[in-house]
Amino acid sequence: MSHILIGGATGLVGRALVQQLTPNNDLWLPCRHAGTARNGHHWLVTDFAHLTDLNLPVPIDTAFCALGTTRREAGSAEAFRRVDLDYVLSFAELARRHGCRRLVVISSLGANPHSLFLYPRTKGEMEQALLAQPWERLVIVRPSMLLGQRPPPRRSEQISQYFHPLLAPLLRGSLTRWRAIESTQVARAMVHLATGEGIDIIENEHLLTL
């Protein structure tokens, strides 16, 4: 049994990760509100502003980070960057402090630290910070729009899910990278990619094939 740390376990991809990694692993789940009690689930209710203060009783083998929000949900650009940059880096620090050398993290299609736009720029800055750290295995996945039932639902994702069956057949060739992807498919890819060594940045078109 592996000791696995998951950030964002109550979110869309995070819930899929928890489901796929249960019951063969020991899951440590920092969160604002505890999820369903189950054997092997250790819900750690915490203030994410003090995430690095957590002390776990076991070493961590692998960490999966699915933390993320939108500017609309966060309420401001500063609050958005706090979640998608600061909290992700704090999560990585927490994992490394507990011996973890394997991290799989969700970024976004189009991540670019030099972008003029807040969302891709923040994701790109997050990627750069993690790439500068000494991980034995680091995987950054860049999905397009996520499909799935998110509580509460995001309007942009609701619209995407409505039109996806009509648009998907048109998104071929170089346009494949823009296809929406099921959250469960992203989670399966993340679990698959956690093994091995080295650094990989996985674009959406590759995620669709895994």
Rank of each mutant, 00 (worst) to 15 (best):
P59I: 10
R71P: 14
P113W: 13
P59T: 15
T70H: 00
R154D: 10
W28C: 03
E127Y: 09
R96L: 03
R155K: 14
L130H: 02
Y119V: 02
W43C: 04
G124Q: 09
H33G: 02
H164A: 11
P23C: 08
Y87T: 10
H3V: 12
L85A: 08
G14L: 14
Q128E: 13
W135K: 13
C31A: 06
G99R: 07
S107C: 00
L210W: 02
R102P: 06
R172S: 12
P134I: 04
E182T: 12
R179I: 10
V191P: 12
E73T: 09
R96T: 00
G68A: 00
E136H: 14
T209C: 10
G40L: 09
P169S: 10
Y87S: 07
G124L: 10
G173S: 10
G173I: 14
Q128Y: 14
R121D: 05
A92W: 04
P151C: 01
V141G: 05
M1L: 13
P23E: 13
V13S: 12
D53N: 07
A92L: 01
D53W: 10
Y162T: 11
R32N: 12
E205I: 10
Q149M: 09
Q133K: 02
P143K: 01
P143N: 03
V83W: 09
Q133P: 08
L207Q: 07
F48R: 02
S107P: 13
A16S: 06
D61R: 14
R15W: 12
G196D: 01
T184A: 13
I199Q: 14
